[in-house]
Design a protein around this nucleic acid. Structure first.
Length: 206
DNA sequence: GGCCAGGACACCA
DNA sequence: TGGTGTCATGGC
């Protein structure tokens, strides 16, 4: 057991299970998770929930509906999540790519090797590394770890890494070497975000 | 009332 | 490749 695995166990004991996107097997290929992953770009989850609720209420919380919906209409619905102009464009590009080429997200996840899936997602405008990996990990149950700024800060804080620049791929492969199970990767990333928030709060109050 | 979220991209040097 | 501006709402 290396440092990273020990940190995972420590955070799990400290905060308990986070259960971010209720990660049961039947959620495999779930559109809602992918949509949430795009909406939450640099945005608090509270705001994303309002946008998701608007979509759900309109029965548009799925990729088919979003692909067919007018962009102006989509902007109105997702407004609470902020950056609504670009997020509406990004959602439509993603939804169209999946529905037109694979029909469903589930088919996409079963279409090709993981590495190629990841590369394909990254080619879509508006899908960067963190969003792509969130979709793969939480909607696709793929063994890909999601790295974010909190990961970088916390790994520095606990002395796991010692870098001055944020190297996404380096941190990702480090974690994937120690944490193998999809469920553990999902929990670990959620725990890091939780810990990161507390860390920030403490730093602000002193 | 200011600060900043579960980022990504364009543009510049 | 590295640094900076932009996008925008709502919670704290």
């Amino acid at each position: 057991m290396g440092k990273i695995y020990n940190l995972y166990k420590y955070l799990l004991q400290k905060h308990g299970k986070q259960n971010w996107w209720p990660c049961k097997g039947e959620k495999y290929g779930n559109d809602e998770i992918a949509i949430g992953a795009i909406l939450t770009q640099n945005t608090s989850w509270k705001n994303v929930e309002k946008a998701l609720e608007n979509l759900r209420h309109t029965e548009a919380l799925n990729l088919k509906a979003i692909a067919e919906m007018k962009e102006e209409r989509l902007k109105e619905l997702i407004k609470p999540a902020g950056f609504y102009n670009q997020k509406a464009e990004r959602l439509k590009l993603f939804a169209k790519h999946i529905t037109e080429n694979y029909k469903t997200l589930k088919h996409f996840f079963e279409s090709k090797p993981l590495k190629e899936q990841r590369e394909e997602l990254l080619k879509i405008k508006g899908i960067g590394k963190e969003t792509a990996d969130s979709i793969l990990l939480y909607a696709g149950f793929k063994p890909v770890f999601v790295v974010d700024k909190y990961t970088f800060r916390i790994f520095n804080h606990y002395g796991i890494i010692n870098m001055n620049k944020f190297d996404y791929e380096k941190i990702r492969t480090m974690v994937e070497r120690e944490i193998k199970k999809v469920e553990d990767m999902q929990e670990f990333h959620a725990l890091i975000v939780q810990e990161g928030k507390i860390l920030r709060k403490n730093q602000n109050s002193k």
